[in-house]
């Protein structure tokens, strides 16, 4: 059964990818790429990667599609059909593909339990993490503790992207003040949606908090929570206007929160150092190592959540402000 699902989904994937390559309507391309992500997420689920599926669905199908649509609004919908020089590209691609296929020839077969990947390093996570870290979701314990430093780096990547987008799409305060009051929300006229969302929004935010703090036991964690939280705010912005939303989250606050998230994560590491352990060695936080691990993971996940939510909201706001600016310039 699994295999069948696998094959069907994979075929769908190939079709979607081909369609993306063929189509010239960027709107369709973006929607298809969203579908592509969603299909991938389903496959991840099928392959036991629940956390990844969760993330891919919220990021690939959600945020990423949203951002692409936002920029399409600014740059126009159609790709011009132009002189391609596909031969060279095709050559490069085929060579790369050939190297990869060559590489697959000696690979351990898909799904085999005796592949080297399952023999070294990973078994310890599965066998000992309960005793060492005390968190049932092994992905969380590896993510936040064993390879916690990677996750700090990941948070920093998000932060960096935020800095990049802010510096590229900054709009001067003057433009903002002049235009703030006059900008209607994108979907202002959708009254039904407005009503529904008013009820839904608290639930979305609560769900975000659930994902944030339940990451130890089920799929989820700071990153997914941050994205969901941001998605809630974005939904609100679309329906009730940017001016309302940025009154709740002024840009400075968002920047501060993004910075605080990273600082919280790094700070936990520093505290561990001051308490006598290595950087990010949560064991030193409490007398009982497992308690220390719990506390550490809770705090760093919070840091991740903060940064991710703040950065995602900021990025969306920046794109939206740019639209506002364009309208202003047209006038």
């Amino acid at each position: 059964m699994e295999t069948l699902i696998d094959i069907v989904l994979l075929s769908f994937l190939v079709l979607t990818a081909l369609a993306v390559a063929k189509m010239h309507d960027l709107f369709a391309v973006v929607m298809l790429s969203g579908i592509y992500s969603l299909l991938t997420a389903s496959l991840f689920l099928d392959l036991d990667a629940v956390d990844v599926a969760f993330t891919e669905a919220s990021v690939g199908a959600g945020i990423s599609t949203l951002l692409m649509l936002a920029s399409l609004k600014l740059v126009g919908r159609y790709e011009t059909r132009t002189r391609y020089r596909p031969m060279l590209a095709l050559g490069v691609v085929l060579a790369t593909g050939a190297l990869l296929i060559y590489g697959t020839l000696d690979m351990p077969h898909f799904g085999s339990a005796d592949a080297p990947v399952h023999q070294h390093v990973a078994p310890r996570y599965l066998n000992d993490s309960m005793g060492e870290v005390g968190v049932p979701n092994v992905v969380t314990s590896v993510l936040a503790s064993y390879r916690g430093y990677d996750t700090l780096g990941e948070t920093l990547v998000v932060f960096t992207a935020g800095i990049g987008v802010i510096s590229l799409l900054r709009v001067s305060r003057r433009t903002k003040q002049q235009e703030m009051q006059k900008v209607p929300a994108d979907m202002q006229q959708q009254i039904i949606l407005r009503v529904v969302v008013k009820w839904l929004l608290p639930l979305i935010l609560i769900f975000a908090l659930y994902v944030q703090f339940h990451g130890d036991y089920g799929p989820g964690g700071g990153f997914q929570a941050g994205v969901i939280f941001a998605a809630g705010i974005i939904l609100y912005t679309m329906l009730f206007g940017l001016s309302n939303a940025s009154r709740v989250f002024p840009p400075k606050l968002l920047e501060l929160l993004a910075a605080l998230g990273v600082l919280l994560y790094g700070g936990v590491g520093i505290v561990c150092m001051l308490l006598g352990g290595n950087f990010l060695d949560y064991n030193s936080l409490r007398h009982d190592p497992v308690h220390g691990q719990h506390l550490g993971i809770l705090l760093v996940e919070l840091g991740v959540g903060l940064t991710v939510a703040a950065v995602m909201i900021t990025i969306f706001f920046k794109f939206t402000w740019r639209t506002v600016k364009h309208k202003y310039l047209e006038k």
Binding site: D51, V52, I63, V142, V157, F223, F319
Partner: peptide, 23 residues
């Protein structure tokens, strides 16, 4: 679980790149 952890990180890197690229 290890590939899952790596890919979680990689997805984040991916969205970060996309956002910057779109900007």
């Amino acid at each position: 679980p290890l590939p899952h952890v790596l890919i979680l990180t990689a997805i984040v890197v991916g969205i970060a790149t996309t956002a910057l690229g779109l900007a």
